[in-house]
């Protein structure tokens, strides 16, 4: 069965650019274009991974989602790939190396735009890491 992913990002053009890559990668992809719909989707359906844009709306509204997930025992287990438009000093310093925001159990951060290979690699490795962590429990 193919893995289910959710993208929460308010830029439909950007979303189209990552969704088609993930579609081609064999994932089943849902999209929410605002934090509210995103949270609703997370609660309604079980996802294997969330791709989250931090800088939505007028500020860092994506962080609100990360905070809510952190407080929820069930949602905490979903791995999160944070996609940010902010230039991350850390990402600059360690190109290619993972940056862990530690919002939830398993997460990582990449900068927009994301190269297809990197995107697919990160998605796969995060899902695997989350599964391994779950198996430990």
């Amino acid at each position: 069965m193919s893995k289910k992913l959710l993208i929460i990002d308010d830029d439909p053009d950007f979303v189209s650019g990552i969704k088609s890559i993930l579609d081609a990668g064999g994932y089943e992809v849902d999209v929410a274009y605002n934090p509210k719909d995103g949270l609703r989707a997370l609660q309604a359906k079980k996802y294997d991974l969330l791709l989250l844009d931090i800088m939505m709306g007028r500020g860092a509204e994506g962080i609100m989602i990360a905070r809510k997930m952190r407080k929820d025992a069930k949602l905490r287990e979903i791995p999160v790939l944070i996609i940010t438009g902010m230039r991350e000093q850390i990402a600059f310093l360690f190109p290619g190396e993972p940056v862990h925001p530690r919002f939830v159990d398993v997460d990582e951060m990449v900068e927009k735009p994301v190269e297809p290979k990197l995107l697919l690699d990160k998605v796969q490795s995060l899902i695997q890491a989350a599964e391994a962590k779950k198996a430990e429990k």
Partner: peptide
Amino acid sequence: VSHELKAPLSAIQQNIFALEFE
């Protein structure tokens, strides 16, 4: 500047990535 200028460029670049990939 960061948001208004970079966001559209990122979206363009992302779609080019996707197009090339497909």
